[in-house]
Design a protein around this nucleic acid. Structure first.
Lengths: 212, 212
DNA sequence: CACCAACATGAGGATGTCCTCAAGTTCGGC
DNA sequence: GCCGAACTTGAGGACATCCTCATGTTGGTG
């Protein structure tokens, strides 16, 4: 879209510093952290931050690109597992682990941030991989057949709530919550669910284009 | 503790109005809603709000007294159910319903607000009833034996996250999340959990004295 | 009905965050 | 090494919310 000519060396350096600082600050304080603090942490002025990233969302998008990539790696690893169920469990656990250690990543699951075209595309890819993880686990009879990909969002949304409450008190408590949820996802003890799953349009509206 | 002499008639009236307004505004906008808005909604000045409720927390405490009472009623009703499991499910569903329709109640689960002595006592009572609900369901063999009362907190924390994401898009989606979680709580499909439950001290620190 | 304590009022200072922009500085091609 | 474009800077205006306090109003008691 926008033909971006290469940045000058100093501008490029500052951009990298800002992204690094944003990762640190967001991880600690969440996505609502004051931009001044990110600028200070990066060793540049607030004006420079606005020069590099016109909006808060643009910075968020850039800062979390690595997490998006990490998610894709997790999904790949999950699909490489011979046991479809343990692949699914592995994937969910890795995502939850990220959420547990990074408050920004957790916030990201709870709100819908406008994404760049690249991020949206990467997320859509991740989505497709998750779909395969789910289908594989269902085909093997391990994952209950009445859940859809959209239901995995419950894991992330729900988990984010538990982590927010317990991160400071019992950093590992979320593993127990996830354990309960995984048992609820198994075919073995499944009981009919009360309402139909979210349809793709609803998921999109709940998480923004590209999903999470 | 503090011998509070009765309020003058107009002051009493304003107090009631403020509590009513706070319920409305908190339900819509959450606990961070500006106090000015509550005062305006109650038809009094911001100064009067501060006269009646010295701190934001005091107002929250007063505004949610009815919800605490409602929780106790739900617990009673649950214990009156002949089927211990359906009693437990009923209780969780009612709480989640409140969370789904009242953003303030949801926020309350996610943060720890200082409570008045009365509220704390009422919550402790509710807690004790929840303990009975859990024990009864376990005794009947319906609820898995390796969960504790503290694990129910995962339901509320987790559910709050899901509702926050889906309330505007699919107001009933939380029922599905709850359904999955309930299946995870059943004895039938239980698998060992990875970490020990929160101990009472941790629960207290996570939710403030009296719990929620 | 008169009086004072109790109460209500809302302008305004304090705070924190956002974002802009005019002035100064640095990069890098020539 | 010079110059223009690219970049950085940080003070400052805009905004939202907080909470206080001096002043004016009202309830209810004697």
């Amino acid at each position: 879209m926008s033909e971006t000519r290469p940045l000058r060396a100093d501008a490029r350096r500052n951009r990298e510093r800002l992204i690094e600082a944003a990762r640190t600050v967001y991880a600690e304080r969440g996505l609502d952290a004051p931009l001044d603090e990110i600028a200070r942490c990066a060793g540049v002025s607030i004006g420079t931050l606005y020069n590099r990233f016109p909006s808060r969302d643009a910075l968020i998008d850039a800062a979390f690109a690595d997490r998006v990539a990490a998610t894709a790696r997790f999904a790949e690893h999950a699909l490489a597992d011979d046991d479809p169920w343990s692949g699914l469990a592995y994937f969910l656990e890795r995502i939850c682990e990220l959420q547990a250690t990074d408050r920004g990543y957790r916030d990201l699951a709870a709100r819908s941030v406008p994404r760049s075209a690249e991020t949206a595309a990467a997320l859509r890819d991740g989505y497709r991989q998750m779909e395969r993880i789910v289908e594989r686990a269902q085909h093997a009879g391990a994952l209950r057949s009445d859940v859809t990909l959209a239901d995995l969002a419950f894991v992330f949304w729900g988990h984010a709530g538990t982590v927010a409450a317990t991160a400071d008190i019992a950093p590992d408590a979320w593993r127990r919550h996830l354990g309960l949820l995984l048992d609820g996802l198994r075919s073995e003890g499944a009981h009919p669910l009360p309402v139909p799953p979210l349809d793709p349009a609803q998921v999109e509206r709940a998480m923004g284009p590209g999903g999470c």
